[in-house]
């Protein structure tokens, strides 16, 4: 019993350290944003770049001597926190497919956005239309799941492939993707993330963290026992909508590094791994963030050094953690039954 408390405290300290690390990286994103809009001379960016230069001289690891390298690491750091955080709720609400679906909906959004840009000349980061369409998609998924008479995941599966199909049609109609690469959207492309991508990620993460820290208890109650939460007069349908919209925010923010195809993995894999070995919800939450964060940071560094695609490397690291967690929990189970 005391053992579990000590383990929880260790995980908590580790999670706080990760939070601090990501907060420092976020400071870079703020400075990066201000510099991009000409609001500051980017002194802080300069500090980070000199530090990156020192690292490059000492180790030969050059990624951090570039502005995009720090930007990528910072966006990754934020994904590693908000992805597993939202994942804890949607996985245990048995809504894991929602993340996948919203990513595909966002793809249709990217396509529509490009079409609009082509027609009107209004230029935005491709994440803006992706976000709008993903949020609309979030409400549509919820509506379909509640109203349709088919099995729970059928409308979700239809929505997933349907919105992807729509995306390909719109792209073809618009004469292909101009200005951004389709592979970049599908699989993520870390080297072309513009400063506005970092700004979006900062804002989206702030919203997600703000909501989850204030609504942690309510979301947990609904996730664990929806009926009892309803009897306790929690507004369950409002919280459901909130959760799906937050998922859309996370998915769109994370898309730029992981791509449409792989983004849902960051919501699901670390949570699944942590849930195998954790005893309590809090412990699982800390552990999921640690696993997510480690997969992303190590994945980005390894991918850069080895010339591998970042999204695939990150997700594979997560999957390795999951397999390890399954093996560990099996062994624990076996040792209990031997006793």
């Amino acid at each position: 019993m005391r053992n579990s408390t000590r383990r929880l405290q260790a995980l908590r300290s580790a999670a706080i350290a990760v939070f601090g690390f990501v907060a420092i990286l976020s400071a870079f994103l703020v400075s990066d944003t201000l510099l991009a809009y000409g609001l500051s001379s980017g002194g802080l960016v300069g500090v980070f770049l000199s530090l990156g230069g020192l690292i490059a001289d000492a180790t030969g690891f050059t990624l951090l001597s570039f502005r995009f390298g720090w930007r990528m690491l910072a966006i990754g750091g934020l994904i590693g926190i908000v992805g597993p955080l939202i994942g804890m709720y949607i996985v245990h609400r048995e809504m894991a497919m929602i993340g996948e679906t919203l990513a595909h909906t966002a793809f249709a959004g990217v396509a529509i956005g490009l079409l609009v840009t082509g027609a009107t000349g209004i230029e935005t980061n491709y994440l803006v239309p992706a976000l709008i369409v993903a949020i609309l998609g979030a409400f549509l998924v919820e509506y379909l799941a509640a109203r349709s008479s088919s099995y729970g995941d059928v409308p979700i599966a239809i929505m997933l492939s349907g919105s992807f199909a729509l995306g390909t049609l719109v792209i073809s109609y618009g004469g292909g993707l101009t200005g951004i690469s389709i592979e970049g959207v599908l699989f993520g492309n870390v080297s072309v993330v513009p400063p506005s991508g970092g700004t979006m990620m900062l804002v989206l993460s702030a919203i997600v963290l703000g909501v989850v820290t204030t609504q942690y208890k309510q979301l947990l109650f609904i996730t664990f026992d929806e009926q009892a939460a309803r009897v306790a007069q929690l507004n369950v349908s409002a919280y459901n909508s909130l959760l799906i919209v937050l998922t859309a925010l996370v998915v769109v923010g994370a898309m730029q590094i992981l791509g449409v195809i792989l983004v849902a993995a960051m919501l699901v894999v670390p949570v699944a791994a942590a849930s195998q070995v954790a005893t309590s919800f809090r412990e699982a939450l800390y552990l999921a963030v640690l696993i997510g964060e480690a997969s992303i940071i190590i994945g980005l560094v390894v991918a850069h050094q080895a010339g591998l695609p970042a999204g695939g490397t990150i997700v594979m690291l997560g999957v390795v953690c999951y397999v390890a967690a399954v093996v560990i929990s099996d062994r624990d189970l076996a040792s209990i039954s031997v006793r």
Binding site: H92, L220, F221, F224, L234, S275, F281
Partner: peptide
């Protein structure tokens, strides 16, 4: 709660949430 990691105490704490 067959798969969800949550302790007995965490479940009982839900009684205080309202």
């Amino acid at each position: 709660g067959s798969t969800m990691p949550i302790t007995v105490r965490e479940v009982i704490e839900m009684g205080r949430f309202a």
